[in-house]
Amino acid sequence: MTKEQITARLKDKFGPELEIVENNQPEPYFYISMAKYYELCSYAKNDPQLDFDFLFQLGAVHYPDDRFEVALCLCSHEKNHKAVVKVRLDHDNPETVTISDIWKAANWFEREAMELFGIGFFGHPDPQPLLLYDDWDYGYPMRKGWTGPDFVPMPEK
């Protein structure tokens, strides 16, 4: 399906909750509201025409003093198309639901986002640290403006 067809199909189903990002990339980029996030993921996987069966990655982005975002890159094997779905999270209390029951691959991506950004995923089956060491006690390192022990920022030239 082309970019316009995917956009039209999702807009049909989700209407005002879906916001389209205008850019000149060949894939469609969307923002979805928090309330319909799980439903969109579920629809994207199970709908026979969209058939997004491959979660390529789930990444978190921190906009300081503004918001967090979780971006999903979805791909389809059979239909050979891609899409990027993003959801905005509150800055002081970033939480959302887990989608690891829809795509098993999301399990480790969400664990990483939890420990590096501090985003909570409700219902995650195994919320343990993945990459940082056990006694890590210094906050969430991937947030902008974080400093900690043994962190030497590159000097500006």
Binding site: M114, E115, G120, P127, Q128, P129, W136, D137, Y138, G139
Partner: peptide
Amino acid sequence: MDRPRFRPHAGKI
């Protein structure tokens, strides 16, 4: 600085 918001690693398995 807050503690990470997940249950402590039970593992020490």
